[in-house]
Structure formats: structure tokens, C-alpha cells
């Protein structure tokens, strides 16, 4: 989900850049020295996960898993996902340069919201209960991302409103895919390595 340069109006671009800078700043403040290696390696994991294509009928979708990123990284998801988008733009030509702020907000803000909405659910007693919250977070993050992209388009011009509505509908299957997949990922991680969640919240030492 990368908007290209040239479509959005200047106020939307500037607003996106300001919000992105604020989010990255907040994320970096929580990213203490000993957490940077873990955050970088998890950021690389999410970058690789976005290369995975899942078949949907005759076509396929690539993963975004920003919900999962929010659950694992919390506010650090903002700088981590920004780094991913920057590398994708510079080396793969995905998206654009001036829209980087808008694209970052569209992907990372839902991740942070999911972190706050689901962090207690993820810590549930049973792994299955946690998996349900993981699925809720995974689906909600995509819905919010699609909503943010649609909003950025609609704010830029009335001619984009039909396209914005299309974005929302087109993401219904992606939402289902990401919800089920994130649920399964949380189920496995909770059984094998429960400390994966709440990693970035932990105070000192253990990164």
C-alpha cells in the first residue's frame, strides 16, 4: 500500500510529514541503546515478511503485518516501519519520496493504535485467547491503514473519492488474510517465546 508522488495535495503531504516526524520522534525516545539491535532485527523481519505473497483466489496479496509490528514493537514500530518504507522507496522504487510521510503514518499509526488496544489481550492467560486478540489487531491495523490511505486521497481532491472507496473495499480480503495470519503468528510466538510481546516496554537490560 504505497501512494505515489503526484496524487496528493500539498497540505496533505505536509500534514503527513509532520505527523510522521512526530511519531518517529516519540518512537525513538523509547528506543534506548540496548533495544536498538533487537528493534533493527525485528524491523528487518517485518521487511522480509512484506515480501511474502499469499494466494487469494486467482491473485495474491503481499503481507503488511503492521498489526503484528505494533504488537511486538509498540511505539518503536513508527521508526521501524519508516525505515522499511524508506528502503523500499529508495532501492525498489515503491511509492515515492515526498509521500514518504503520508505512507509512514498510514502504516505505522495503525500499528501503534493496535498496540494500545490489544496489549492487554495479547497478555491473556491462554495462548488461544492471545491469538484471538492478535487476529483482531492484525485485521484492525489493515482496516485503519486502508482508511488512512482513503482519507489522504479524499482530502486531496473530490475526484479521488471513488478511488478511495475502492481502496476500502479492495482491502476486505487483505483484512481477513492478515487477521487469520497474525492470530496464528501470535499463537506460535506465545507458546514458544512469550517474552516477544512487551519486549520494547521492558525497562532495562534485557533487549
Amino acid at each position: 500500500m504505497h501512494i505515489v508522488d503526484g496524487a496528493l495535495s500539498a497540505p496533505v503531504l505536509v500534514g503527513g510529514a509532520v505527523l510522521a516526524a512526530a511519531g518517529i520522534g516519540l518512537g525513538l525516545r523509547r528506543l534506548t541503546i540496548e533495544k536498538i539491535p533487537a528493534a533493527g532485527i525485528l524491523s528487518a523481519t517485518f521487511f522480509v515478511a512484506s515480501l511474502i505473497h499469499v494466494p487469494v483466489g486467482p491473485s495474491s496479496v503481499h503481507l503488511i503485518v503492521n498489526g503484528l509490528a505494533g504488537l511486538v514493537l509498540g511505539w518503536a514500530a513508527f521508526p521501524a516501519l519508516f525505515v522499511g518504507l524508506l528502503l523500499q522507496a529508495v532501492f525498489f522504487g515503491f511509492g515515492g519520496l515526498l509521500v514518504l510521510g503520508v505512507n509512514t503514518v498510514a502504516i505505522a499509526l495503525p500499528a501503534v493504535l493496535v498496540h494500545y488496544a490489544c496489549r492487554r489481550g495479547i497478555a491473556a492467560e491462554s495462548p488461544h485467547g492471545a491469538a484471538i486478540w492478535g487476529a483482531v489487531g492484525g485485521g484492525a491495523a489493515i482496516a485503519l491503514t486502508a482508511g488512512a490511505v482513503a482519507l489522504a486521497l479524499a482530502l486531496s481532491g473530490a475526484e479521488f473519492v471513488p478511488a478511495a472507496q475502492l481502496v476500502l473495499f479492495a482491502h476486505l480480503p487483505v483484512m481477513a488474510v492478515e487477521a487469520l495470519l497474525s492470530g496464528a503468528a501470535v499463537l506460535l510466538a506465545r507458546r514458544v517465546k512469550p517474552e516477544l510481546f512487551g519486549l520494547m516496554q521492558a525497562e532495562a537490560g534485557h533487549a
Binding site: 539491535p37 533487537a38 533493527g40 532485527i41 525485528l42 528487518a44 523481519t45 522480509v48 515478511a49 511474502i52 499469499v54 494466494p55 503481507l63 503485518v65 503484528l68 511486538v72 488474510v177 487469520l180 495470519l181 497474525s182 492470530g183 496464528a184 503468528a185 501470535v186 499463537l187 506460535l188 510466538a189 514458544v192 517465546k193 517474552e195 516477544l196 519486549l199 533487549a207
Partner: peptide, 21 residues
Amino acid sequence: TLRSFGYLVGMMLVRALERSE
């Protein structure tokens, strides 16, 4: 398929964390 890919992503996260340690 979705469950298998989900376990795959979960496993990658677990291994990434252990690697980072």
C-alpha cells in the same frame, strides 16, 4: 495456508529475537 504462513512469520520473529540476544 494462512495458518502455515502465520506460524512461519511467528517463527521468524522468535528466531529474530533469539538472534538479536
